[in-house]
Simulated assay, not measured.
Amino acid sequence: MSQFSPLKIEDSTDPEEVVNVSGVLKLYRDGSIFRLEDPQMFVKASLEGEDGVASKDVVLNEKLGLWVRLYLPSSHLQQQTEKRRLPLIVYFHGGGFCLASPALPDYHNFTLKLAASVGAIVISVAYRLAPEHRLPAAYDDCIKALQWVSSHAVDGGDFERDLWLDFQADFSRVYLLGDSAGGNIANHVLLQCGGVEAWSPMRVRGAIFVQPYFGSVQRTRSESECPPDAWLSLQLSDAGWRLSLPVGSDRDHPFSNPWSPEAPKLEEAPLPPLLVAIGGRDMLRDRGHDYCESLKQCGKSVEVVVFEEEEHAFYALKPHCDSSERLMEKISHFISSSLSEAVIHITDVAG
């Protein structure tokens, strides 16, 4: 059963509270922040091969608090050989830029299932959260994580290497995957890395955006018609942007609005093939469709899959429902069949 319950912006009897998200995240007038970190809500990495997949945590930058959780199908755990390398998925979790981590059970279980279903190494990135660290902190952290991954594809480098990646990962088959805020992160990472020289050894073959989190000052129809008791409500979405965008910015900031005049031009970006998943009852569905239509008009390769009966984050709320199983099948098929020559190379990217 999912650990999540619907998150709401609650009225508070405490006059010092500015924001209260279901008691999970509280922002006070003096600038202090409370974020629930109940150890019962989190799970530890396991080297025993949980659900046929082993996992472990690696700290990349102790000062920043940047770490990743690696997942490896257990059948490959002891196979220190280069003869059969696995595709690599770099995963950016959701949470409105303000909540969650790879250790949250829903995301841990999602990545376990992803590694087992696809037969891939998965790297889940624990990036810094807002409002303590507003954007672009999450983007910078995820680019640093990709730099660390890419450093394994060359000799030398400034990063400490990991044996799972050294001996098991196929750096010619790398994929980015992000859900909700993580989909937004994946989009920005790809756009920021578009100018890297083509000789880089690591190749991103494709990207998967699951219900990506975009916004603007102007409301879409699906936003205006969103019921207040939806899993992702308009009030909650707006709060996420208020807490994560640079101070003084509105939702037309390029971090939020991919059509902002200051945003990178989609038509100029050498994007890999994309798979975009949209929920038919998700408040963000219109933005997802508009984003895909813009990419298609630019001549980009985009596959769209719509789960008509699903709200936001259905894959975490209902991991064993038909839609969640179909999403996993779509991701697996996309990765196994992605043979396009349109690739992006990521290395030496300015953080």
Rank of each mutant, 00 (worst) to 15 (best):
S2E: 02
S2K: 02
Q3P: 04
S5M: 13
L7S: 01
T13V: 12
L27Q: 10
L27I: 15
Y28R: 11
R35I: 06
R35Y: 02
L36V: 05
E37T: 11
D38P: 05
V43P: 05
E48N: 13
D51Q: 14
G52Q: 00
K56T: 14
V59N: 02
E62M: 02
K63Q: 09
K63I: 03
S75L: 13
Q78F: 11
Q78S: 12
Q79R: 13
R85W: 00
L88E: 02
G95R: 00
F97E: 08
C98S: 12
L99F: 04
A100I: 09
S101C: 13
P102V: 06
P105F: 05
N109M: 11
N109G: 05
T111E: 10
L114M: 13
S117K: 12
V118N: 02
V118E: 02
S124N: 09
S124D: 13
V125K: 02
V125E: 03
V125W: 02
H133Q: 11
L135R: 03
P136Y: 02
A137V: 01
A137T: 03
D140W: 07
C142F: 00
C142Q: 01
I143R: 08
D158F: 04
R161H: 11
F167A: 08
D170Y: 07
D170M: 08
V174L: 09
V174F: 03
G178H: 04
S180E: 13
I185S: 09
A186W: 06
N187A: 15
G194M: 12
W199G: 12
S200E: 14
V204C: 11
Y213A: 07
F214T: 09
F214N: 07
G215T: 10
V217A: 11
T220R: 10
T220H: 08
L234A: 15
S237A: 15
D238S: 14
L243M: 14
L243N: 02
L243Y: 04
V247L: 15
D252K: 06
H253S: 10
F255A: 14
P258M: 03
P261T: 03
K265P: 00
L271V: 09
L271W: 05
P273E: 09
V276Q: 04
I278W: 03
I278D: 03
G279F: 08
G279H: 10
G279L: 10
L284S: 04
L284C: 03
R285Y: 03
R285N: 05
G288N: 06
G288S: 07
K296R: 15
K296H: 12
C298R: 00
C298Y: 01
S301G: 04
V302L: 08
V305E: 12
E309C: 06
H312M: 01
A313R: 05
Y315F: 15
S324Q: 05
L327W: 05
E329K: 12
H345P: 04
I346H: 08
V349H: 06
